[in-house]
């Protein structure tokens, strides 16, 4: 049984992950409106990953005898000034998620809640991967610059991404 404070923080994190789903769907929609179906596919898959994260937390909260409280979701941004802006905002968001996961870990350690601490290790690893992926894509975008042919190829590459549930 996790503490009330720990459950509150886990519940906040669960709702934060749901916000991520909306944010990435908003980004996917922006990409489609710009005729970049591959980038849109990338963000749709990203939204599926965030749903997976949320459900993993949903299950854990119940495993430790808590209860999920759904919160009102803030409206994510709908307009972006281009792909670079899109990926910069994605990185900023992932960093924010990493920061909040780290806060959860700190709380778990301060309470000697080793079960939650162990549960959160998966998310720490996942966040390192998420940030790394986004940084790599942003670097590629900057490398491409105004080269439309290269952008076409990157769009094709991202269009091949499919969702596979990460190993638990």
């Amino acid at each position: 049984m996790a503490s009330e404070k720990m459950l509150q923080l886990l519940n906040d994190q669960f709702n934060r992950e749901l916000y991520s789903v909306n944010l990435y769907l908003s980004m996917a929609s922006y990409c489609l409106s710009e005729d970049l179906d591959g980038f849109a596919n990338f963000y749709r898959v990203q939204a599926q990953e965030e749903t997976f994260h949320a459900m993993k937390q949903f299950d854990y909260i119940h495993q430790v005898e808590g209860k999920v409280t759904m919160q009102a979701l803030s409206q994510p941004p709908a307009e972006f000034s281009g792909l670079t802006d899109l990926f910069e905002k994605t990185i900023a968001h992932e960093k924010e998620v990493s920061r909040s996961i780290n806060e959860l870990v700190q709380q778990a350690l301060s309470e000697s809640d080793f079960a939650t601490h162990t549960f959160l290790q998966w998310f720490i690893t996942e966040q390192v991967e998420e940030e790394s992926t986004m940084h790599t894509l942003l670097k590629k975008l900057k490398m491409i610059g105004d080269n439309q042919s290269a952008l076409y190829l990157m769009n094709e590459e991202l269009g091949r991404r499919t969702f596979t549930a990460p190993a638990a």
Binding site: D12, R16, S74, A92, H93, E96, S100
Partner: peptide, 13 residues
Amino acid sequence: IDAATLAIMREED
């Protein structure tokens, strides 16, 4: 909070 982070943050955060 830097502008890029602010643009995508939830009001609660």
